[in-house]
């Protein structure tokens, strides 16, 4: 039982980071109809930006905020420089261009920071709480709570503020939005900026948990199953699916894999089930696509033709 609880806590912490990344993907998709492969790259860039700022001696809060600002700029620039010229290009071309961005961002970080993992300066206080047999570092608690709060805050912003309303209008029907005087292309830029800033924060949080390396960009690939499971155009779905997937992965690592392996080792010649948690999101994704293609929270017909 303590093991399960401990696993759940670990899963929620990573899951909330997945959720932040997935939120960004959904946001961009809603506003511009683009599935952004570079979301993982934004997370990585955000983490490196925080690292540079922290190393320069900025206080943690300022550094993280500043790196989010930088990432917002990067996001807006991507939209203006790369995506806008491709407004009429076919879907495959747009997807590929974001993949190109991912490759470029990784290569740029490789050239500047080198291939090795870098120690991330402490953002949260060192130490751990231990209650009821559960052992959780402050790092974990802080990252998890911060990610969860921000995700919720973002949902509220989207649902309650005038800007959120304009965003939703632009996303739902860009012509109607234009007709009532919303500057749609500015809204699209804003969506990219927000999405990149969210991803940048997620990257920074992930770096506090996992250290700083180029591998941070891989989280984008985990986020795709998350958004599909949640429903490609549902922000709430991304949040819930992110948390669920984080917990499921953690349980797979800590409970399911050992249990399966115990059974297999006792009864068959098979000794290992491999890195099961790595395929779990994709297996879920396939299942979801077969049973309910619109995702947990998606509405039918949400997919674009």
């Amino acid at each position: 039982m303590t093991l399960a609880l401990q696993l759940a806590v670990a899963g929620l912490a990573t899951g909330s980071v997945y959720a932040l990344i997935a939120l960004g993907i959904v946001l961009i998709y809603k506003c511009s109809g683009v599935v952004n492969f570079a979301q993982g790259a934004y997370a990585m860039l955000g983490a490196y930006a925080s690292y540079v700022l922290l190393s320069a001696g900025l206080p943690a809060v300022l550094a993280v905020l500043a790196s989010m600002g930088v990432m917002a700029g990067v996001g807006a620039l991507t939209e203006r420089l790369v995506l806008r010229p491709m407004l009429k290009a076919p879907v495959v071309a747009v997807m590929m261009v974001t993949l190109g961005l991912l490759i470029c961002a990784r290569a740029a970080c490789l050239a500047v920071f080198g291939p090795d993992q870098i120690a991330f300066p402490p953002v949260f206080p060192e130490g751990a709480v231990s209650a009821g047999g559960i052992f959780v570092t402050y790092n974990y608690i802080a990252a998890g709570i911060l990610a969860a709060v921000l995700s919720l805050g973002f949902l509220l912003f989207y649902a309650r503020t005038p800007m959120g309303l304009m965003q939703r209008c632009a996303a739902d029907n860009s012509r109607a939005a234009l007709a009532i005087g919303i500057h749609v292309s500015n809204q699209v830029s804003a969506a990219w900026a927000m999405s990149a800033a969210l991803a940048g924060l997620a990257g920074t949080l992930l770096a506090t948990l996992n250290g700083l390396s180029l591998g941070l960009a891989d989280i984008g690939m985990v986020a795709f199953p998350v958004v599909v499971v949640g429903g490609l155009s549902s922000l709430e779905g991304a949040l819930v699916a992110g948390l669920v997937l984080g917990v499921l992965q953690s349980f797979t690592d800590g409970l399911l894999t050992p249990a399966l392996e115990d059974v297999l080792r006792a009864n068959t010649g098979i000794y290992s089930v491999g890195a099961l948690q790595q395929v779990l999101p994709y297996a879920l994704l396939v299942l979801m696509l077969l049973l309910r293609p619109q995702g947990l929270f998606g509405r039918r017909g949400a997919e674009r033709i």
Binding site: Y29, V35, V91, V228, V279, Y282, L285, L289, E303, R304
Partner: peptide, 15 residues
């Protein structure tokens, strides 16, 4: 269609 299917092929690759 389109994007959903592209993501499904990602799953196929991983599996």
């Amino acid at each position: 269609r389109g994007l959903y299917f592209a993501i499904a092929t990602l799953a196929a690759q991983a599996i």
